[in-house]
């Protein structure tokens, strides 16, 4: 079973570039059309209505603005953080 995870997005920092939304393998990120941040962008947001975040951190790896903090269910096999993300 896929691991469970979640992301916290710094929406004020986000520039709405969509790289994370397009890269997310689970399709659980979208730009929030109802929200405009101080910079004038629609920031990314987690939307798990169809699917769930696995905490794979692909979004964080591509985000040019380092807006995304990724959390993941502790895995049975403990791995170093770097190794977990950058494999």
């Amino acid at each position: 079973m896929a691991l469970k995870g979640t992301v916290v997005i710094d929406q004020e920092r986000c520039k709405g570039c969509q790289l994370c939304t397009l890269a997310c393998p689970q399709n659980v990120l979208l730009l929030d059309a109802d929200l405009l941040n101080a910079k004038g962008y629609h920031p990314a947001r987690l939307e798990e209505s169809h699917n769930f975040c696995t905490g794979c951190a692909v979004c964080a790896v591509i985000c040019p603005d380092a807006c995304i903090t990724v959390f993941r269910q502790p895995s049975p096999r403990r791995v170093e953080r770097t190794e977990a993300i950058y494999g």
Partner: peptide, 27 residues
């Protein structure tokens, strides 16, 4: 959505970056 507190933080903004927002264009 699972509360973040029960989870392990696997990625966060690196300490070697400041909190400043960059001037780079989106993306």
């Amino acid at each position: 959505m699972i509360p973040a507190a029960e989870l392990e933080r696997v990625y966060e903004r690196p300490e070697s970056l400041t909190a400043l927002h960059t001037n780079y264009c989106p993306g």
